[in-house]
Amino acid sequence: MDVVELLQGASLLVPEETATENDITVRDVWEYLAQDEWEVALDLLEELGDHHPLPLTFWKTLAKAAEQMRLERSAAWCHWRCSEIRHGVIRADLALRPAEESRRKTAIHGAGVLRPMWNIGNRMPTGEPALNIASLWVEYRPSLEPGERSSVRLLPLDPEQWRHVEPGQRITMHEDRSVAGTAVILEVQRPEWALMH
């Protein structure tokens, strides 16, 4: 399938009455497709998907379209959303420690590349804290500098270890034994199995 067919196919999975906060609808997507504005159409479809639960097929199709257009961040976002449908959504407010107080001196790439360890309250048999790995996506910005704060999305390597995590819970991020940042859980959504097909 070419890019246009993929975008058209994805748009057919969006209910016609779905609209974003800015009143963007699937009709807007079709208008941009008619004008060969594929990247704008892709952006609008991503936005529609962020405001309304859509099936796994929608995000897989968008990922293929983004890959064909060589839009790496969009492709990564669509693959991330596929994983969230399978494993659930965890959002948190993360504050990184300043560079002078931590080992990290450079910004975190925001598109799900970093896979830090997290102290989420689990314990090892010896009673010591067990750290659990989760990839990190910085929301609404390309990166996060030491000392900055942002809402983030977490994608656990082992979702079963994160079942007890709930909104309001305070967790710490680690890239080594020291604390690299502190986060407060904002939202937890369990997997939406009904959307898998």
Rank of each mutant, 00 (worst) to 15 (best):
P116T: 05
V138L: 05
I85G: 00
V138W: 02
R81S: 04
M173G: 00
V179K: 00
H174F: 05
M117V: 08
H87C: 12
H87R: 13
M69E: 08
A92N: 03
S143A: 13
D158M: 13
R70I: 12
R104G: 01
L131F: 08
L155R: 02
L114M: 13
E139Y: 06
V138Q: 01
W162M: 03
E187D: 14
L157E: 10
G112S: 03
V184H: 09
R153C: 06
A95L: 11
G110N: 03
R73W: 14
L155W: 01
M69Q: 05
R91V: 09
E148Q: 14
G112W: 01
Y140M: 11
A66H: 02
G127D: 05
R97C: 12
R149T: 06
E175A: 08
P129C: 10
G147R: 02
A75K: 00
R86M: 09
P146K: 06
R91H: 13
G127E: 04
E160F: 10
E72F: 14
L157T: 11
G110R: 00
L144M: 06
V113I: 13
K64H: 15
H174I: 06
R163L: 15
A99P: 03
Q161M: 12
W162H: 02
L186F: 04
M124A: 14
R141N: 08
R163K: 15
I171M: 05
I120Y: 00
S151I: 09
R170E: 13
Q68M: 15
P142H: 11
R103A: 14
I185H: 04
I133D: 03
E145H: 12
R86L: 14
Q68V: 14
R123P: 04
R97V: 09
A65I: 03
S74P: 05
V184N: 07
S74D: 05
T106C: 07
H164F: 10
L96R: 01
A95W: 05
S135R: 10
S143T: 14
W77R: 08
V138G: 02
A75Y: 03
M69C: 13
V89A: 11
Y140R: 15
V179I: 14
D176K: 10
V138M: 04
L131W: 04
P129I: 06
P125G: 06
A134I: 01
A107R: 07
S178R: 15
I133R: 10
H164G: 09
G127I: 07
G112A: 07
S150P: 05
E175Y: 04
L154Y: 03
E187H: 13
E139C: 12
R70N: 15
L157D: 09
T106E: 15
R103C: 10
V152C: 06
E84V: 05
G88L: 01
I108W: 02
R141V: 08
L114T: 08
R70C: 12
D158N: 14
K64N: 12
S83I: 11
P159F: 03
A76R: 08
T126V: 11
R86Q: 15
G121H: 10
W162Q: 01
G112N: 05
R149S: 11
R73T: 13
T172V: 12
T182A: 07
H87G: 09
L136Y: 00
P167C: 10
R103F: 12
L155C: 03
S83E: 13
G112H: 01
Y140S: 15
